[in-house]
Design a protein around this nucleic acid. Structure first.
Lengths: 358, 358
DNA sequence: CTGAAAGCGCTTACAG
DNA sequence: CTGAAAGCGCTTACAG
């Protein structure tokens, strides 16, 4: 038993030549005679030789491996982004190691530590909501391992970032609710420790301000980015003396929790309360009524993050200036916010394509 | 720039002792004096030394890495199973490399090749639906890399397997539909290339036989395990002259497609058509009506697969006999199949816990 | 108790 | 055109 992979030494032995020659022949070096090359290559194929990548890594101090840390792998936003990362990584000969922080500071630091220990060539990360500091990222970068942030970035660390325009999209989303006739609009935000949460919240606030609508502290509630958070906050909101007639949730997972609570409580969407989410997960369109949402190009965010990272990895010198790419979102209007008798804005009445994942 | 991790050699240089001594001190060898140990350990900590795992791997011919191949990472059944695998792997010092086959034979072979090339210590896999042969798994095993199958296993390869009792659960699920008063029950199966699909289908057929209900070829349709497949098949079924009044879908993803189609077509569940899925994904309970389903312990399946694999990895000798673990499912009855005026079987009328993922 | 040497699988100057 | 040697970072018999 035991993995007894065949080595260059074995090929050399069988052919009665030196390891150096075998190595060169395999790499198709110009200084080896055609005849020798042929013999080596044929035997290598016959023995099913594959070079030991571990030995190569030791030699080159390069692992051809990149790490990615996301809060949660079963959030479709992240799993799709991962697929985008894999798409470019694999095509360029890199492997992807996936880590989950589960929103925990400790776990995230352990993940970073693991990535450093394993000598990954680089890291793509979307920061955990409970990360208190980002020194661990700075340290990693200091140690020569480049980082790219996507979605949830750190302000403390200078590097490439791939984001969407959270502020503008939230502003536009809130305006959509206003156009549907909502006048008392609440917001269930994500944890304020994250810039995306603050930006989304500010977009909401500024839209209300622009339209001179009332702003109340009780209408802005913070939650973790998950369903339970949404459900809990919806119960709180609807129990208020001054109930909202529209809710903008900072993510679809939160929105799904709100949706569930509203249905439990007997409210009709969009007539009693209009609801809007953020990210446009595949499941959102399956709800009844289907959820309106601000769609993010998650796959493309993953792709671009990987491209930027490989650039950092393969150009040894630190770039003079780092890039922040801001990708486009679009408002996907569905039944949860589209009121029949309101002026139609961007209605997509047809069957949403997302209902047919391949 | 560049990762200039500090090495054992550097510590030796600074302390004016040999590499051997440093190495031994770090591993707390009994043959090193306490004083030396202390000096070494202190300097190591100060320099933030961490041993190069690549060098260790080369030495031990062990990578402390296991691969896992699943059809699709954003299927919650698989992502949860992966979390189960990670749970035990990390606690035992192993890292997990995740691969997606996307149900493709070629991709799966490439993944296996990659795992072999990377010298992973073992593989956990749920086979792709379009895998024609399983020789690539046999070859890997032959090469000394142990394998454990979960959910979708290969009959061609002898090794540990972690499954659920697809036949019995499907039998019971079908009986549940019968108890609800369904008399014309259709089945949307998964690809017949997979044993799980065949077993689920047989469970369905035998339940009908036992209750002497009609079986019609047009009522058994094959689909890929995804939503689009379910939608398509539902349109076909409901177009039949002899329409079914109950549908058992071989997976929740298929069931979600069926659910969507039935609503589009104006059917009411469960009265016109009762619907039952398989796996009990988190989203299933969010649909309206919520989906009844046969719940699988996916996290636990992942955990046990990892345990069995580590056993194979760490006991060099091939075991005399391989183990097949069959885990318990349970029928989760919800609105899509529970008829008010039918005899209540295992109704769980309370709010399903799955509605509150953390 | 400590060091010099060999070796894990490979590549690449350096000699011929 | 081919080989012997050194070296990537580590461990571990083998000597002292």
């Amino acid at each position: 038993m035991g993995k007894t992979s065949i080595t260059i030494k074995e090929i050399a032995r069988q052919l009665g030549i030196s390891k150096s020659t075998v190595s060169r022949a395999l790499r198709d070096s110009s200084e080896i005679s055609g005849a020798t090359k042929e013999r080596v290559i044929e035997l290598a194929r016959k023995l099913n030789y594959s070079p030991n990548p571990i030995a190569l890594s030791l030699l080159k101090n390069q692992t051809h491996t990149i790490g990615i840390i996301v809060p949660d792998i079963d959030n479709p936003f992240f799993s799709t982004a991962i697929s985008g990362v894999e798409d470019v990584a694999y095509s360029r000969g890199y492997h992807v190691m996936i880590y989950q922080s589960h929103e925990s500071y400790e776990r995230e630091m352990a993940d970073v530590r693991h990535i450093a220990d394993r000598r990954a060539d680089g890291l793509i990360v979307s920061v955990a909501s409970r990360s208190l500091h980002h020194q661990h990222f700075a340290d990693l970068q200091e140690g020569g391992i480049p980082i790219v942030f996507f979605d949830r970035a750190s302000n403390e660390v200078q590097t490439h970032k791939v984001l969407v325009d959270d502020y503008t999209s939230s502003f536009a989303g809130t305006e959509h609710l206003i156009e549907q006739g909502c006048r008392k609009i609440a917001h269930v935000s994500g944890p304020m420790s994250l810039a995306i949460s603050r930006n989304r919240c500010n977009g909401y606030r500024d839209a209300l301000r622009k339209h001179k609508l009332p702003q109340r502290d009780e209408w802005v509630l913070e939650a973790e980015y998950n369903q339970a958070g949404g459900t809990e906050r919806a119960y709180q909101l609807m129990a208020l003396r001054e109930r909202p007639d529209g809710i903008f949730a900072a993510s679809d997972r939160i929105a799904i929790g709100v949706h569930w609570a509203l249905r439990q409580l007997g409210y009709r969407m969009p007539d009693d309360v209009a609801l809007l989410g953020f990210s446009d997960l595949g499941v959102s369109s399956l709800l009844d009524p289907p959820l309106s949402s601000i769609a993010q190009p998650s796959f493309e965010m993953g792709r671009q993050s990987a491209e930027l990272l490989l650039e950092l990895i393969e150009n040894k010198s630190t770039p003079v200036t780092y890039e922040t790419r801001v990708l486009k979102t679009h408002l996907q209007v569905r039944g949860s916010s589209l009121k029949i008798n309101a002026p139609v804005v961007q209605a997509s009445a047809e069957i949403p394509e997302e209902s047919y994942p391949s």
